[in-house]
Nucleic acid binder design. Structure first.
Lengths: 175, 175
DNA sequence: TTACTCATGTAACAAGTTACATGATTTA
DNA sequence: TAAATCATGTAACTTGTTACATGAGTAA
């Protein structure tokens, strides 16, 4: 049976990302963090309230975050990292089994199905995908300019992923 | 509110992958499919019984799969794709908003935290990550030889992802 | 007969999603 | 004052995970 709460087993991906973002910000409200996730194209989560608020409450409950409620009538809560939170972040950041994993890639997942298609149909679909990937690359480059160094480093990784996809398409569209 | 059962909204990633795998196999038991997921390093799911059996039952309930129970005393069930299942697979395979997405990448997620680290600590961690990624590449190449054309196409994509990571590390380890 | 593999399945739980509710504050 | 935005939160649901249960067939 697995323990609940902030398990010894370690942080989830979302929890780690939240902790890291709180540390970067110094102090931040769930609302702002949520919108950072919402806006960021490099973030894999929807930034849904139903995920962020419970996760931050969980982290606070585990002593990894502290919250200070301001008296602005809205009850805005400012979260910051505790020492314990900082310590918890290390094994998360250095978890090799996760770091080295390929994650979930909807492109890769579909490859077998694409390769099942007959010549003409496959060529058409791959051409369509190629256009979509190129459009995504353009959007990524445009977005990149608006962000700081750290986000750009994330964008750069995704751009390289998309380029790898383009190479893959080129290698498989006529076969 | 979202409808339940096999939603109009489309198949989940796992459902699509299952359907595609069933089509490839022609006819397959959940047990065998489960083990294909379990063994495959390019598959992102654990292939847990608690995911595969319910998903296939769901797909059968929606008429996308049919099952024939053999009388071997074990009640082994052989699933195959229905016409409806084949039709459902198309929009899943051509869902551009998903195809073009970056998916969830635990490496990318950790980038901000790595870049927060001071010089020495960062260099040590990135060196460790580099070794792990290289080991993964070797494992991938060794595994690749044992598989067929379609799986190799998936492996090739992951290899390129890992190479992009190595390039990223090289660019960020001294900075 | 003991142990292993084949094969299906369930129970409890974790953690995300959408959609909604509620209210304060700012801006047009 | 109406509408938009800031801000927190909950409810219902979906779907995955681990861990276990059950039993048939096979090889030592």
């Amino acid at each position: 049976m697995r323990p609940s709460r902030i398990r010894k087993a370690g942080l989830t991906e979302l929890e780690g990302a939240i902790l890291a973002a709180v540390r970067r910000a110094g102090s931040i409200t769930p609302y702002k963090l949520r919108h950072a996730f919402l806006v960021s194209p490099s973030m894999e989560w929807s930034g849904s309230a139903g995920a962020v608020y419970p996760a931050m409450r969980r982290l606070k409950g585990g002593g990894l975050l502290t919250a200070k409620r301001s008296d602005d009538g809205r009850g805005t809560e400012h979260y910051s990292l505790t020492k314990k939170g900082g310590r918890a972040l290390k094994p998360w950041a250095a978890d090799m089994s996760r770091v080295v994993g390929a994650g979930s890639d909807p492109f890769r997942t579909r490859v077998p199905e694409w390769l099942m298609l007959a010549g003409g149909e496959r060529a058409r679909l791959l051409a369509k995908i190629e256009r979509a990937v190129r459009a995504r690359c353009r959007a990524l480059k445009a977005e990149m300019a608006k962000h700081g160094r750290v986000e750009r480093a994330q964008f750069a990784l995704e751009l390289d992923l998309q380029r790898a996809r383009l190479r893959w398409i080129a290698a498989h569209k006529r076969a």
